[in-house]
Amino acid sequence: MKILTRIVGRLVKAAVVLLAILVLNFLLIHAAPGDPAAVMAGEAGATDEMFLAQLREKFGLDQPLHVQLWKYISDVARLDLGYSYRQQMPVLDLILDRLPATLLLTGTAFAVSLVFGVLAGVLAASRVGKWSDTLISSVALLFYATPLFWAALMGVLLFSVTLGWLPPFGYETVGSGFTGWRRALDIAEHLVLPALSLGLFFTAVYSRMTRASMLEVSQMDFVKTARAKGLSPAVIERRHILRNALLPIVTLAGLQAGQLVGGAVLTETVFAWPGIGRLMFEALTQRDYNVLLGVFFVSAAMVILFNLITDLVYGIVDPRIRVQ
């Protein structure tokens, strides 16, 4: 029962934050110079007053700003994210169209970085001070300092252009007609480079964090007690240290799982990955207000959702919290 109240409380707070995000972004984007009608007229290479007026009326941009804002908020309350001016389709469809690609990319990058990061961190912590620790820590630090877009570019240069092992960009081979497993394999091949470049930084973050956290926990009293009891080092490491060292990592992972959705802009741009990060960037330059707001809305909702999940996972990892 308590957990339910807590979840409801969190959801109410989340709704307030989401509303604030919508209003702020709405005002921000409308403060930008130019509007979608001007962009579309500009692209057409010719325009006159009548053309602009037609477009603005069609998009509802001839209304006062507060009317537009109110209409938008009440639409969103009914889960209607509006219509894309440029793509001529509902924003929700557009986002749902692009979301799987982003989730696949970020999900893979997330899983890869979590697994490798924690493994590397545990390895480094168990050999603290030895050369393998130094190596892991140095490599992690190097990854940590490498700009994502640069790593992506160098990856394309090496693995696609020079070696020809992997496709340099895209989601799948267009027009190949692949189905079933063949298609999955095709997508997986395209996924390798973007997922690795995106995951590189986070692998570094997790390995550093795991190492630090393991070392900290290993000095705590209950671990000393366990050692005194004569438990084998492997058991202590697994049952006592790792389990407790994972707490800060779960928190961080929860935060980042949500942020990854919006943070894929660079990767999706370099790799021409048809996800919502790219959608957002295009919508911004085209002043496709509804799409931009929709992407912000969805990614913020994801962050909130992941934070909630983190909270629940926390309860599993740390039984004390469940009891409280």
């Binding site: 921000l28 919006g262 962050v303």
Partner: peptide
């Protein structure tokens, strides 16, 4: 501010 995707927000602010 932690809920809004931060890099996306930075892009929007700079572009605007």
């Amino acid at each position: 501010f932690q809920t809004v995707p931060s890099f996306a927000l930075a892009i929007v602010i700079v572009a605007i």
